[in-house]
Write a protein that binds this DNA or RNA. Structure first.
Lengths: 344, 344
DNA sequence: CACAGGTATTGAAGCGCTTCAAAAAGTAGC
DNA sequence: GCTACTTTTTGAAGCGCTTCAATACCTGTG
């Protein structure tokens, strides 16, 4: 069991074969097609493996067999739980198929993204999942043509042909606004920014659509923020609290939970409208901080795990039938989660 | 540049050699010891590599050379930024030495921890960094004796002999309390829990030590919470706010930033003491949410990146000089960060 | 111009495994 | 006991690279 290693080097298949009194090919069969080996031989080889503490060398296996069982996942920002959810989903799906997922954190650096893509390529992983810097997707994909199958998450590659899986932010915005309208709100405000971030502008478009559907019965104002952190929300909250009573919105869609949290906090501190009595507030992301905040926050949950699973399914399909595989663009739907902040 | 792949298979060194009109060994030299190759040959081979889009196979290289340039990092919980910091640090240090770090998220599951340790072992990575389930460290390390060098982070392995790098939580608690005392606070309260978590109880011990040093001039009360989330903090905050004015603490050490945030919020909402005028509050972790919260929170920053770097240094040293390496136990120091919540 | 002492290049052996055609061992039927 | 199969086992070839001893190619000298 334990590797005593009387000799220096770790045991190889040859050692196992010798000890079990079989040929090297038989040991290989025990590892890969145990059902083709006679039970007593199987037993003998397995004991030998245990006794020697033999650990097969994956590099050699992969090299000889021309296959790999690891999937590489290059993640733009692991500190964002959305991406970590994707990783979880990917792993679940991979595991079902006997594969493993290894993560590389590119940490929002284009350069590291390239380094890791190259690393996985050289490692001849079975396939690569890539959640890229949005600005960078095509560069990464085209640079070198990698040779490995790649599925892109959270970004639609422009020119390059590849499967991709994205979240429908427009729909998320729509769902959020729709929910407020359905519960009787008529003066909506959207808070978020910068609009150059496509998730933000997509969510805004969804809100617009919901408002447009109301045929003029619902108004919409926009409050742009520099970013989507709590501090931005607080600032916007103070701004809103300072409005003339007649101009106060009665429903606020924030581009992110942190922003919503900031708004609620500002209202409370600076004597703004009460949540949810005077105004409903809904965020986006289903941030952990949102579900046990003081006033539990309604929100739109991103389909992170789902995206990871879907991407992995696509990747495996592509790997397995390179011939007939047609690239797909999946657009997954977020989920509305209603909590106290929008329940009057 | 791009892989046209007239033939099916990706180009190998042999193809490059043929195209450049050199022997296969020369191509290898170009990759590994370019200075030993005549400039014109170098140039010729490099063009051939580019033209064919040759990407060397790391598995084969590693197998032949008997070395690897990847370090595996098995992380117990990537959603905790402390561990992500370690990963960042590890990567920085690894990069300096031409190595790469691949992450595996065990997601607080003992089983997955084992799976990934085994995976890295079979992959014959150069070494393994392990931030384990605290309860599980020895099992993982002993099961199989892995054969690879392992450095443990954030946990001290019991029986098993290995390097480890931990954070000094006791000191962190001491620094926090000391800071409050130094700024004139005399009635301290520690808020946190559960005490079965060694980081919590260690921090508490540090607070006790600082108080003890004051020779009775400082009092300490303890408010136990179920967990270290914001909601726990809010609950504790309300509890404190409800105390008789004479019993109010004037300095609060929270076991985590989220707890501190909850306390501050509760005070504000429920008309508790003002922060920092009436009471100083200090948290722990240097959580992002803490540094741009409404009242910027003083805190104790964990040496996450530092731990990752140190662990990687130890690992590389162990890999490089297996003979003379002596296992070490590093205990790194946290840093006090003073912001508004403790500045009166 | 031949020769010693570099410097470059060569290619066969081997890293630890999988595969696959061929050989050996079983099994059944008569 | 022999034939005709079927199931197991065998081991050489090869996966794509690094290495290293051997060879070829350069200088610069005497």
């Amino acid at each position: 069991m334990s590797v005593q290693n009387g000799s220096q080097r770790p045991p190889r298949m040859e050692d196992v074969a010798k000890r079990a009194g079989v040929a090297i090919g038989t040991v290989s069969h025990v590892l890969n097609h145990p059902h083709k080996v006679r039970p007593d031989t199987l037993e003998r080889v397995r004991s030998a493996i245990d006794e020697l503490g033999f650990v097969p060398d994956r590099r050699a296996r992969a090299l000889a067999a021309g296959t790999s069982s690891v999937i590489g996942f290059v993640v733009v920002d692991l500190s964002n739980s959305f991406f970590l959810d994707m990783a979880r989903g990917a792993e679940q799906e991979a595991q079902k198929h006997g594969m493993n997922v290894l993560l590389a954190n590119s940490d929002v650096q284009a350069e590291k993204e390239l380094v890791y893509m190259h690393l996985f390529d050289e490692e001849r992983v079975a396939g690569i999942l890539l959640a890229p810097l949005p600005t960078n997707a095509d560069d990464v994909l085209s640079a070198g043509r990698w040779g490995r199958d790649v599925v892109v998450l959270n970004t639609v590659p422009g020119e390059t042909d590849a499967c991709c899986v994205t979240a429908n932010n427009e729909l998320g915005g729509y769902l959020a606004a729709r929910h407020l309208i359905d519960t009787g709100r008529r003066a909506l405000a959207f808070v978020g920014g910068p609009f150059s971030l496509s998730p933000v502008s997509d969510r805004f478009r969804g809100v617009e659509r919901a408002v447009a559907e109301s045929n003029g019965h619902v108004s919409l104002t926009t409050i742009k923020t520099a970013n989507v952190q709590e501090v931005d929300g607080r600032k916007a909250g103070r701004q809103i609290a300072a409005l003339d009573p007649g101009e106060l919105p009665d429903g606020i869609v924030a581009a992110a939970d942190l922003v919503a949290l900031g708004i609620v906090q500002a209202f409370r501190t600076d004597g703004g409208p009460r949540v949810p009595a005077d105004v409903s507030v809904i965020g986006y992301d289903n941030n952990r901080a949102a579900w046990d905040s003081d006033v539990p926050l309604s929100t739109v949950a991103q389909p992170g795990e789902e995206m990871g699973r879907a991407a992995t399914r696509l990747l495996l399909e592509e790997i397995r039938s390179p011939g007939e595989h047609r690239h797909q663009r999946l657009h997954l739907e977020p989920t509305l989660i209603v909590r106290q902040s929008s329940t009057r």
